[in-house]
Design a protein around this nucleic acid. Structure first.
Lengths: 145, 145
DNA sequence: ATAATAAAAGACAAATTTATCTTTTATTTT
DNA sequence: AAAATAAAAGATAAATTTGTCTTTTATTAT
């Protein structure tokens, strides 16, 4: 298993791509995003619709429309995207799927996963959506298969 | 999304349960394991068949049969179970699902996920299957919902 | 106003994961 | 040898995730 769902992988890649496009001063259409991140177009459309409904990205219909990421949104942590798409299972809850797992009733891996969870959260929480705009524009970082 | 698949959650819990039973000198049947870890019996049977085929646990048919974990196997790291069930996606490969992601062609999260991957692997690799036998017998740790 | 553009919404469909039940095979006990 | 036990194997099905295509709605430009 991967760390994120496919949906979340596409969401993160798309969000980085859109943020970088917005930075260049351009709204960007679903076709260009899908091509830019190598993802299935219609599937990605659904994902972006969802992010848009949740206010994590912006979209405008019609000619010269497309997706963009507002000033405020671009500063939000990546954890917001992950949480919106995959929920908080990566940060919270029991690694072995036990609902009753807690400090007083721990599963065997309770202690060992504490640090890992918090590391993952920290990392995603201190990485902002606009974090890689320049590197993406320079072509230093890649979003394609 | 959770860290492990359901299949892997059941596998880990079952393996801990079996190890602890073996430690008590008892082979244990699928019914008891399923009850002991609160998992769907027939689904778990499939999972254990697979682990057995792969030599990670032992099983004996017929009266007084059941599952057990041999001396050597009980010392194996948990990462072996995780890898057998969920593959190495948690330790290796790109967090954003990019096949070409590497040191020379990194995705945006390449650097940030390095440490996390290695922490996860370290943890699972230094935890052995028999690691929690006593605590499980004492009831200090729980494997049930 | 009309046509063109682009996202939103809706309806399916394929693939994978999770789950259930039945039949078969191996082993032990009587 | 026969009966009982317990895992292995096989077949199927429900649920979820992933992916595709069509129709509708909103917006812009002509």
């Amino acid at each position: 298993m991967a760390i994120f769902s496919k949906t979340c992988e596409y969401a993160i890649r798309a969000v980085f791509f859109i943020a970088s496009s917005t930075d260049k001063g351009q709204r960007v259409g679903i076709k260009d995003i899908a091509a830019g991140i190598d993802s299935p177009e219609f599937f990605l459309a659904k994902i972006l619709q969802d992010l848009s409904r949740k206010g994590l990205i912006g979209s405008i219909k019609g000619p010269n429309g497309g997706f963009y990421i507002g000033e405020a949104e671009s500063k939000r942590p990546l954890s917001d995207i992950v949480e919106a798409v995959d929920g908080n299972g990566l940060f919270k809850g029991c690694a072995l799927g036990l609902k009753q797992c807690s400090e007083i009733n721990p599963c065997p891996l309770h202690e060992e996963f504490k640090e890992i969870r918090s590391k993952i959260y920290q990392m995603l929480n201190q990485t902002t959506i606009n974090n890689f705009n320049e590197e993406l524009m320079n072509g230093i970082l890649s979003l394609k298969k």
